[in-house]
Amino acid sequence: MSIVNLWLKTFLDILFFPCRSFSPWIALIFISFLTGLFLLAVYKVFSNQQKIKIAKNRIKAHLLELRLFSDDLVISLQAQGQLFFWNLKYFLQVLRPLVIMVIPLSFLLSHLNLWFAWEPMPPGERMIVKIKLKEGVNLQNFNISLESTEGYEVETPPLRIEAEKEINWRIKALKSGKFEMPFWFDNQKITKEIIIGSNSWQRLSPVRPASGLIRELLNPGERPLSDSLIEEIVISYPSRRLNFFGLKIHWLIAYFFLSIITGLILKRPLKVEI
């Protein structure tokens, strides 16, 4: 899992490098275009294009039949049966590329989320840092401290919430940049990345998880924690919304819309049957 994450992280870092000084829209349009292309390619390679074409033609033919013989009950019923049958065949044909797409898309989406879902906290603002402990850990005996650095100041003592199995701190962002947050417990040091900045667009990792397939898939921003007591370290970055003519929209909506548009526009020139 770590290797896949590292590979994707590097790929997107390189890909988005030229876009970083522009609006996130540029990168989103770019990646949506590439995703559209990728989806078409997967379709073309992993589906039987001929069979899809036949299925679609048959569906069209039976639809026409339905319209032409709408006053003939027998023909209409037969046509409906055929429609159902060919729809099913069409679905089976597209199922394979769809299944194949799901895996890389899931990885890609969780990585894109790091780029588009959050905003760094500007200097002067405050946020909460949380350590979530695993079930069974006694919070009162778990002595852990968080140090201030030049990038942020820890403003509160640890707040231990037994009901949530959490330890929280409030920090104040001081200086733009990428910093390491050092947590100390039992003479051990664990770290969490934190990014501070205003008006900047970059990859943010709100969660550093413990190791585990799903946790790492959903939180690919940093290497998983090896310690067995901590479930995750979370920074409450503010959510990012993209500005679409005054409307604040979630990046996923824009991404899916743009990818589909790309697919629909390019399917004919690339001769892909979808």
Binding site: T156, P157, P158, L159, R160, E162
Partner: peptide, 11 residues
């Protein structure tokens, strides 16, 4: 409101 058992701090 969550209170720390010792420190004067709350969430």
């Amino acid at each position: 409101v969550y209170l720390d058992p010792v420190y004067p701090v709350a969430k």
